[in-house]
Each structure stands twice: as structure tokens, then as C-alpha cells.
Design a protein around this nucleic acid. Structure first.
Lengths: 206, 206
DNA sequence: TCATGGTTTAACCAAATGGTTAACAAAAGT
DNA sequence: ACTTTTGTTAACCATTTGGTTAAACCATGA
């Protein structure tokens, strides 16, 4: 029975992820999730006591993967520029793989900041460096030019994440101008971000 | 009666805007809106037949103002660089004034792309130029260096809008790193965007 | 084989919620 | 004054929805 057990649990989580991602906490219906998973609604409550617990599971998982990817730059063996480049690369690839993740996080965080706060604290506890500390360090020891690290962080995240967050908007904008915006643009996007990083973090600014 | 009439309608719209912005279409409850407006729930249905109509009113209004601000660059008397700078400036100021607008649009668009599509078509019909066409023009006549206008558009919008969209996330990130992220950063943000525009649109690239 | 315990379901329940009705209030027209 | 129109409300209704219950199902070990 253990086999089947783990299986349905995973199936439920996948279904819940899909539905929650699409509809959010309020929009999602337990029945929809049950249908998606191909099981009875009561079974949802058997595995995850209620809607919030199920949501928490999905949400927590998403957050963990999110931060996991955000914290990869702590590798001190590489120059900071290199780390930031890899970091943004992985960030974009991560978002490309889970396109709804970003918007999902933002949706839910904006309507339930408290939960997010707690989860982050739990996850960040065991992480040593954040991009911010790394940047500050680099500025102080002269590896980076002097710049406002918070603004840079904001800019960088904007360039990486917004294209996925606002994909629906852009599809319409581009469409109505006769251009296409699809996955083939990821490479161009990455190039422009690399360009930005080099521009901002090179010691030889103009 | 005309006086009171217009008044309650406006009150309802304000209340609906507030609640819808915060909770979205699904999350918002008619009762909440009625309470916020200080009136009976039935009165909502008296003025706006049902929830969707009321939502449409709020949503349509938001969209119109949004696009109104996005289309100001059509002033041909100015050099393109100037126009783009003003454009991004106004964009940021607009979002600063309606911080939830962007996230609201994204939320609703992502769960109801069709409506958005229609509304945009209706609004864009009477607009002559979009940022894209202006950019393309500038590239062709040599006023701008050769660059991918779609990617630039994406980058620019990202830099402007994401800080507002992701404000909740950033507040937590910054907080857990001991930094502050509040309105005082708008100016820094604007500077960094100006810098980006100059970097990208100057003919004298490095 | 059959008792046991985890798994799954159909049927049900109570609360929430969008929407309606009928009656009342207040202004405007006559 | 009184009739009509417009604005407003309390009470109500039907449906949806999260959650529960009791019974059935089924693999496994005694």
C-alpha cells in the first residue's frame, strides 16, 4: 500500500500545483483539483486535511525551489561577475521551466504577505550569502565599481522575471504590433541581461 | 435625485476598485464591496447588474488609464530618446500612484486573456503610434543605433514595472538583509532607468 | 481464509455567496 | 395633494463550495 500511497499523494500535489498556479488560492476549487487528479474530492482531505494545508504544501515547495535558485551565487571560488552571470542565467532558465511560478508567487504573496514572510525566514536561515551581501562585499574590496547594490538587484531581477510575469500582456502588445513574443526570445533576453550585467559591473565604466 | 445618484455610483466604483485591486475578481466578495461603500448589497446589483459587470467597469477604467499613459510618446516634435525618457518617467510615476494597478492587471489578464484582448483592441484602435513603431522608425532612419526593439521594449518595461509588481517580494528580501525598500527609491530607480536608456539608445555605443 | 488497517468513494451537510424580491423612502413631476 | 419615478433596504433563495461521514475496497500478514 505504501506504493500507491506515495503515488496518489504526488498526483494530488501535481494537480494542485497546476490548478493553484492557474487560479490562485481563492480561484482554485477543490473539485477542480480532484478532477485534475482523477480522484474523489474526499481523498484530497484525506491526504491534506484542508484546502489551506494543501495550498501550503504547493506554495512551500514553490518557494523553496525559488530560493534554492536564488542562492546559488554563494560559490566563493568564482569572480563575482561570473557568479552574477550564472545566477541570472539560472534564474531565467528556472522561470522558463516554471513560467507561472513568478506570477503565482506574486499573486499569493501580495494577498498573504505574512505566510511568505515566515516561509522565507525558515528557508533563508541556513543560507549563508545573499546576492546583496556578495555585491556589498565586491564593492568594498574593489572587485566591483561603486554602485547602489539594492538598485542593481532590483534592476537585475526586473530584467529576468518581468518577461515571464507579464508574458500575457506582452503577447497582446506584440500581437497587436505584428511581432511575435515566444520562447525563441529567451536567448535574446539572456544576451541583453548579460550585456546589462557587464555594463553595470565592469570596472571600466564609460 | 441626480446628485445622490452619481454620488453612490462613484462611491461604489471606488469601493469596488479598492476591493478588486486587493483581492482580484474571485477573491473579492460583493458583501465586502458593499461594506466598503457603506451601502446595502442589493444596491450594487441595482447600479451594476452583477459582479462581472461591476468588475468590467473597474477593469476597463484601469486599462484605459494604463494605455493612455503608455501612448504618450507619439509626440513627433521631440527626438526619440527624449520621448522614451519621458515615457518611462511617466510610466513609473503612474505606477507609483497606482501601485496595485500593475499586479492587478497581470493577475486578471493571466486568468482572463480574452477580455484583455478585446479591451486593448478597442483602446488601441484610435492610437497612431506605439513605442515599437517609433523605435523601428528611429532605427531605420538612423536616429537610433541598431538594436532589437522588442527586446529593448521588454527590458524597459521590466525595469519600470517589476519593482511595483514585485514590491511585496522585495520588501521581504530587503528586510531580511537589513535594507529598506520604499518610495524613497523611486528616484534612484528612475536614474538607473535613464542610464539604461542612454546606454542603449545612444549612437555612441562602446 | 479472514481479520486488519490503510485507501477510496458516494452521499451528505453547513456555511458562504451571488443574486432576487417585495416593500419602503424620498425626490420630482403633475 | 398625489402619482410616478428613482434610490435603498431587509429578508429571502438557489447554487456553490469546503468539509464530513459511513460504508466499501483491497492488499497483506496471521
Amino acid at each position: 500500500m505504501k506504493l500507491k500511497d506515495q503515488n496518489t499523494e504526488a498526483i494530488i500535489l501535481d494537480a494542485a500545483k497546476l490548478i493553484f498556479m492557474e487560479k490562485g488560492l481563492y480561484g482554485a476549487r477543490m473539485q477542480d483539483i480532484a478532477n485534475q487528479a482523477g480522484i474523489n474530492k474526499a481523498l484530497l482531505h484525506y491526504y491534506f486535511r484542508n484546502k489551506e494545508r494543501l495550498f501550503d504544501e504547493v506554495f512551500g515547495g514553490a518557494l523553496e525551489r525559488y530560493f534554492q535558485n536564488m542562492e546559488i551565487i554563494s560559490d566563493e571560488s568564482l569572480p563575482i561577475m561570473e557568479r552574477v552571470l550564472t545566477y541570472s542565467n539560472r534564474f531565467v532558465h528556472f522561470l522558463a521551466e516554471y513560467p507561472q511560478m513568478s506570477i503565482f508567487l506574486i499573486k499569493e504573496i501580495s494577498s498573504n504577505q505574512a505566510l511568505f514572510h515566515l516561509k522565507v525566514k525558515g528557508i533563508k536561515k541556513d543560507k549563508k550569502y545573499s546576492l546583496l551581501t556578495v555585491l556589498n562585499e565586491g564593492i568594498q574590496n574593489g572587485e566591483l565599481p561603486s554602485l547602489d547594490p539594492v538598485v542593481f538587484l532590483m534592476n537585475l531581477h526586473s530584467l529576468c522575471a518581468y518577461p515571464f510575469v507579464a508574458a500575457p500582456i506582452f503577447q497582446v502588445i506584440c500581437q497587436s504590433s505584428g511581432v511575435q513574443w515566444d520562447d525563441s526570445n529567451h536567448e535574446k533576453l539572456l544576451n541583453s541581461i548579460s550585456d546589462f550585467i557587464h555594463y553595470k559591473l565592469s570596472k571600466t565604466r564609460i
